[in-house]
Design a binder for these strands. Structure first.
Lengths: 351, 351
DNA sequence: TAGCGTTATGTAACCGGTTACATGATGCTC
DNA sequence: GAGCATCATGTAACCGGTTACATAACGCTA
């Protein structure tokens, strides 16, 4: 079933069929109706690849995600898909990439299948490779700051961590441990940096053993919780780099008989849905996942649809402190504004 | 940068370039090397749409998901993507469909963009619409039994629910409430059916108010937990149709001072990662998400690659009872075998 | 050295749309 | 009624690959 068959069935030419389909050239109302009727009757749908070949627009967006699990990623995909569909685009995902070379291979294979890509690559090594990888394809980096001339969006990880630490300090804590995310992960590193900045600024007690290793998984949090008792000096609060680890940690220390927040304050990051239902409900930092995905699509489409190349922009999304009872404070929500919220140009630099 | 430019640069014809690329016809080793070198130097990658147009293979698979959140969907996508990539396919997702008409529209738009689709449509209404929707595109139904001639895969929801109920009965419970999933959802309905079957078979006490409404969300579980006290007659156990609701419910009843499993046994379904870290760890029914996704891909590719149409098959995946302490039993794992595990032909019927 | 099979490569049609340009019909003005 | 603008439609080139078929070169045998 091709456009030519529809043309034959209606006694018109292929050009007219195409015009009706795309609402372009002038077409008599009667002709238009006849074409639509016949197309419907023959169940004809234009062939995506054929169309893509000469318009050079596939109406597909690629989404590349790192090798990680969890609710966070499903939310991002969901929001991206919703935003894309509003603009008549489809989403091609490729998840679970651990290694730059593999990602590059996928990126090449995407030539002619997508019009642009949204790349989420939280490895700190990303910026250096960004330019080489993405030079030939319009792209938006999600959650990895680019030092190249590529649009990018990020969460204010540092600001969120600082806000949480200040909250803990305000509650009187000076002995605060940090449960780290995977080394080399951009989000994890930024959150750690925020932790350290406040530890220094607020003259908190500092001990190397209070920077505990983790990898963002519930299990690593659980293991950290099991090992917690063995610390030579116990902190009064633990700030986990994400909620999943906080939940695992919570489960382990409660099994050991520790009471939260009575004996120990606990805080997380991400505010996943489950955190509200933890026992006790978990104080966390909310991350605007949906807004992030939608904005990435907007940005990408804007640069696809504008003829002239636009200067790359970097945008940081603010986070929000969600105070529940796991740190002993009364439940409330504090917005945490950051100065860099409005889009700011990244200063260009030679490659 | 097209194949013709590579041809010009090497002094060869486009046919030879194409042959080298696809490893087809006979090519001199020296020629092959020259082509590959030049392609690399010019950064040439074949154009997906052009290729798709005449091979009639896009090497893309579509995945249509319903309008639901949560870890379950991200796992399914992940596994599908991994399996697809092993076979050199890409995955085009379209999520958040609530309405058959909308889904049909997307399905049409996929013509010429994908070679086949994996459809997850847990609405009980799906089977009737399946044939009309999917007649023109190779498809595998995930988690919705088809009464039409379409391949399908499903979880043994009924068997899993029965196993859990028997476990509760074996622990001495006769007053068991069920926290339902959304009405019309296939998984939810099957789990409810399993609950009712055991209630009847084991002569459990029956009360209409013990079939509590829910919609699979944490929040609906939480609300059910808040309302729990108001029941005129309290059950000794609650079986939630999924873990997310169980977690919400747990949070609410614990806040009211109920002890689990002391005062009340609680069980879930899905065995999401978080369930292991609940306090108390949640007894649940494990669902083989990964295997399901991978198998769907295998099936779809098999029917794409075989020339002759193959008879549609329906396959049910077994579940596994995961016993933790939320029901008061000692922690252990029971496999629950079902008779229908091996693929069985769905009997064909006239449409 | 003619004849033939085998191997390496070239030529051009084709996939199913879009669109620049050509053509034909119609209505309006003077 | 000739000239011209406007509208509706048709013709055919083109997008960038693949592949059937043609051709050229080579080696081998009789």
């Amino acid at each position: 079933m091709t456009i030519r068959e529809v043309a034959r069935a209606t006694g018109l030419s292929v050009a007219t069929i195409s015009r009706v389909l795309n609402g372009l050239g002038p077409v008599r109302e009667e002709t238009r109706r006849k074409v639509l009727e016949e197309a419907e009757r023959l169940q004809w749908v234009p062939h995506g690849a054929a169309r893509a070949l000469n318009t050079k627009k596939t109406k597909n967006l690629g989404v590349l995600l790192p090798d990680m699990h969890g609710e966070f990623f499903s939310e991002v995909i969901r929001e991206i898909d919703l935003a894309a569909r509003r603009h008549d685009y489809h989403v091609l995902v490729s998840s679970s990439h651990s290694d730059p070379a593999e990602m590059q291979a996928v990126l090449r294979a995407l030539h002619g299948r997508v019009d642009g890509v949204i790349v989420m690559w939280p490895s700190s090594a990303a910026p250096r490779l960004g330019k080489q990888l993405l030079a030939r394809m319009p792209a938006v980096l999600l959650n990895g700051v680019s030092r190249d001339r590529i649009d990018s969006l990020a969460i204010d990880n540092h600001g969120g961590a600082v806000a949480m630490m200040r909250h803990l300090v305000a509650l009187g804590h000076r002995r605060i441990a940090f449960l780290e995310g995977p080394a080399g992960n951009y989000d994890a590193d930024e959150r750690l940096r925020g932790y350290r900045d406040v530890v220094r600024a607020a003259r908190c007690e500092r001990r190397p053993e209070w920077e505990i290793e983790g990898d963002f998984s519930e299990e690593s949090g659980f293991r950290a919780g099991e090992a917690f008792r063995a610390l030579r000096s116990l902190p009064s609060a633990v700030f986990a780099a994400n909620d999943a680890m906080a939940m695992g940690f919570l489960s382990a220390v409660q099994a050991e008989g520790l009471r939260v927040p009575g004996d120990l304050a606990l805080a997380g990051f991400d505010d996943i849905p489950m955190s509200r239902y933890a026992a006790p409900p978990l104080t966390s930092v909310r991350v605007p996942i949906g807004a992030l995905g939608a904005r990435a699509v907007e940005r990408l489409l804007a640069s696809l649809e504008s003829a002239s190349p636009r200067p790359p922009r970097h945008e940081t999304f603010p986070t929000e402190l969600i105070v529940r009872v796991s740190c002993g404070a009364p439940s409330q929500t504090l917005r945490h504004p950051i100065s860099a919220f409005n889009a700011t140009n990244v200063k260009e630099k030679k490659s």
